[in-house]
Design a protein around this nucleic acid. Structure first.
Length: 521
RNA sequence: GUGGAUGUAGCUCAAUGGCAGAGCACCUGAUUGUGGUUCAGGCGGUUGAGGGUUCGAGCCCCUUCAUCCACCCCA
């Protein structure tokens, strides 16, 4: 078969072989144990869900990244994350459980993105959710877990980055910006720092051309007209939709203004109203952008950032609850003792795909000469249970580690040996098979990893095979041994044969494996 | 979605436009019951696919597919 006909693994999907897989399992085992020790109960969930679940949680933005298809009339998606499924399962089955409820999970997720270094289309998340717990202690527990898991694997050079969506979101919603603008600004908070305010303003101008925004900044005198019309506009703004609509229509009628015949009155009224609203939005937007500019500078060492944040909130007269909550979380986190990870506060941190309502955080691994590698991320999502149809709102937060990324950071030296057979049992001829199988079974019962040589290779080949796999002991059974109830144990490291009676099999093998050079039989 | 590279044996890679090769791996034997070495031999290819230029294309041109890398974004 020519290579052109060969079937390859799909793009972004990996075959993981012995050493790499051993490493992943090592990572998984360490993380699972840590979570279990903190009373997080492992559960298993489906890999496919109704597409609607993910759309409802994360919004339409996620649709482009979904492995999503129509199957027998249903819209189905491979999960791009697990939190949505956990909460779906909670709403469906676990609402009678006493809260707080601690859940852990692990398994594959799928995201249709362009693969590259450290980014696959299928990868493994290991994560935890803490349901029914609000407040700083819950926040601190989860952050601590995320960091501690990496520490338990001896991963250093990590940085914990903590943010809080409430500090921007609270401000924006209090400001009374319309929803589209709010979500645009939330999405672009990160860009203020990464690409500069002018980039954001430019994007704003493209998306909302009617706002009169340009790269030079917001138009200063957007509202035209004299003082009287300003007052009129102010009055109209005070009215609700119907009142304002009626007032404008009445005004046009009473002045007997003739309207273009091809255009319905309603449409004219609409345009006027919209115009007035946007005039209203412009100064608020300007205010918001100023706030975001300040916010984007608030990154770094926690105390300094807190200090700057307090000043910012004072200057803009913003509610301090979010910031106080963050401070309490940091204090609670300190109760867990010193973290290895460097802590950074980043009040400009935002996470696009998710539905976070408060604390957000991630842990990054410093790659020399490259961009930091994010190893895990999470945050709080207090309204998600409601969004997914829960009987009552349940505060919740969680996070997930990226298993492959963590494994990629580990050296693979030790994990390789996990799969390697410790003993190879070689029957010389077919007549020796029964004894060989019995010998192998006895050794396996002692917990050893034993490979039975089952092909027709000669002894020479079997030894070579064992040697290349770095096996420590080869047990040889031939006619002579069989007749005398003996076995030849070849100590591969010391290149010597030990003739032992079958009764001493286990102790002799264990002696060789332990490097006992004084063994004599 | 944007940009940059690369596709030759199972793997890693060579090959001025002129007979498609090496190392590793695999198989056989030297050695019929003793291993990392050595030696002899063997298997292995429609050079990703399709078209074009040429006496002649792995190499040049076009198209297409795939993969990798970076941006965006994220675990």
């Amino acid at each position: 078969m020519s290579s052109a006909d060969r079937i390859h693994a799909l793009r972004g999907m990996r075959d993981v072989f012995s050493a790499g897989f051993a490493r992943q399992r090592q990572v998984h085992a360490a993380l699972e144990n840590l979570l279990r020790a903190h009373a997080y109960v492992p559960i298993d969930l489906p890999v496919v869900e109704n597409t609607e679940l993910f759309l409802r949680k994360s919004g339409e933005d996620i649709a482009a990244r979904l492995y999503e298809f129509n199957f027998k009339g249903r819209r189905i998606a491979l999960r791009p994350e697990v939190t949505a499924s956990v909460l779906r399962a909670y709403v469906e089955h676990l609402q009678d459980e006493p809260l707080p409820l601690r859940i852990q999970y692990s398994g594959p997720v799928f995201r249709y993105e362009k693969p590259q270094q450290n980014r696959l289309r299928q990868f493994t998340l290991c994560g935890a959710e803490l349901l029914g717990a609000a407040g700083p202690l819950a926040d601190a527990e989860v952050i601590h877990l995320a960091c501690r898991g990496l520490e338990s694997l001896q991963i250093s050079h990590t940085k914990l980055i903590i943010g809080h969506t409430g500090i921007l979101e609270g401000f924006l919603s209090a400001l009374g910006l319309r929803n589209q603008l709010q979500s645009f600004l939330l999405r672009n908070m990160e860009n203020v720092r990464k690409r500069g305010m002018s980039f954001v303003i430019e994007a704003l101008g493209e998306l909302f051309p009617d706002l009169g925004v340009s790269a030079d900044g917001l138009a200063d005198q957007h509202t035209s007209g004299d003082g009287k019309s300003q007052r009129l506009i102010a009055i109209l703004r005070e009215m609700n939709e119907d009142e304002a609509r009626g007032a404008i229509a009445g005004l046009l009628n009473s002045l007997n203004i003739r309207i273009d015949a091809s255009r319905a009155d309603d449409e004219v009224v609409d345009r006027l109203l919209r115009k007035i609203r946007e005039d209203d939005q412009a100064p608020k937007l300007r205010h918001a952008l100023d706030y975001m500019r300040r916010l984007s500078t608030l990154v770094g060492e926690p105390e300094a950032v807190m200090e700057g944040a307090r000043q910012l909130l004072d200057d803009f007269e913003v509610d301090r609850r979010a910031l106080d909550g963050l401070e309490n979380t940091l204090e609670a986190l300190a109760l867990y003792g010193e973290l290895q990870a460097e802590i950074e506060l980043d009040l400009g941190l935002s996470r696009g795909l998710h539905y976070y309502t408060g604390l957000i955080f991630e842990v990054r691994y410093a790659v020399e000469g490259g961009e930091a590698l994010q190893l895990c991320g999470g945050g709080r999502y207090d309204n998600l249970v409601s969004v997914l149809g829960g009987n009552e709102a349940v505060p919740a937060l969680g996070f997930a580690w990226g298993v492959e990324r963590i494994a990629s950071v580990l050296s693979d030296a030790e994990s390789e040996s996990l799969n390697r057979p410790q003993v190879v049992v070689v029957p010389i001829a077919e007549d020796d098979l029964q004894v060989a199988i019995d010998v192998a079974r006895r050794l396996r019962e002692r917990g050893l990893v034993v490979e039975l040589s089952i092909d027709q290779r000669n002894l020479r080949r079997s030894l070579r095979h064992a040697d290349r796999k770095d096996v420590a002991v080869v047990a040889i059974i031939g006619e002579n041994e069989r007749e005398q109830a003996r076995v030849v144990l070849r100590d591969m490291r010391l290149r010597r044969d030990l003739q032992i009676g079958l009764a001493d099999l286990e102790s002799a093998v264990e002696g060789i494996l332990n490097g006992d050079e004084t063994l004599e039989f």
